[in-house]
Amino acid sequence: MPDPTRRLGLGRREFLAATAGALVAGACRRRPYDSRQFAHPDRSAVGLFAADEYGDGLADVVYRGLREFAPDVTGRRVLLKPNMVEFERGTAINTHASVVAAAADAFLRLGAAEVIVGEGPGHRRDVEYLLGVTGLFDYLADRRLSFVDLNHDDVVWTKLQSHFTNFAELALPSTLMAADLVVSMPKLKTHHWAVITAGMKNLFGVVPGSIYGWPKNVLHMAGIENSILDLAATIRPQFTIVDGITGMEGDGPIMGQPKHVGTIVMGNDVVAVDATCARVMGINPSRIGYLAEAARFLGNLSESTIDMRGEPLARFASSFALPPSLTGGTAG
């Protein structure tokens, strides 16, 4: 994959500023969305909840966190979309299976009629392998929950709600489109092209590889940030739960190093959640192009418009090492 920072000959700070600037400049010419279709919230709430380790105790943490937001899930079908892309022992690539299980338990406890777990891995398309090696298969089997391989689901052609890319529509999984509530469940990671990957970037996983190939290369070609924006504007996940217990720093989203943070981040505004995640990682969210643009029409980015729940941000604030693509280095 061509390296955008090298192509531009930029260092980290300049890259962050330039990507934000390019999107903003483009948007100034003509907004690639109809703002009347988006109800930008005046304020948003994001919760940071302490969770020091993975395991069965998380169910209560997630349940208590969800109650802070009181999502109406009674009788509804909930799709949990974790980030499960690749596996390498000793790393922190994927949303931990116990976090997914905790979320499933919490939504069922709150009255959801059905919880489905779905993912379309961007690299490993062998989900039987991924489900087994990550431990998710056993968690799902214990709870008799269904898993849907979003790479190989039936598809619904869906008009995009914004047009940062040139796609008029995309084939999206029918399970995703039939869900009453889509919950993005990313891992807290740096990303060598997108700076960070959290609730919005996690949506790449819903684009079916059986239609578009792997590793969802068409989205890279259309512009990663543009694709993130179009997917977020179209899918609009109603809730986001970020596995920030052990995140990934450095050359994420696959080759970075584990970074313990000890939190689960939650909220119903994916932009606000991602902006908070960036702050936890020590990155200014307004310098991330797609977040700055998303704040114009999808959600809140500024700290002044985000009400914090749970623990104060300062408790988890870290300084994540950035990917070498953003620092000018090439060390792995």
Binding site: R6, G209, G213, V218, H220, M221
Partner: peptide
């Protein structure tokens, strides 16, 4: 970033990739 022969145009999954 990727030290390989990028001139080799083999087969992609879909067009334009």
């Amino acid at each position: 970033v990727v030290r390989q022969d990028n001139a080799l145009q083999a087969w992609s999954w879909v067009d334009g990739t």
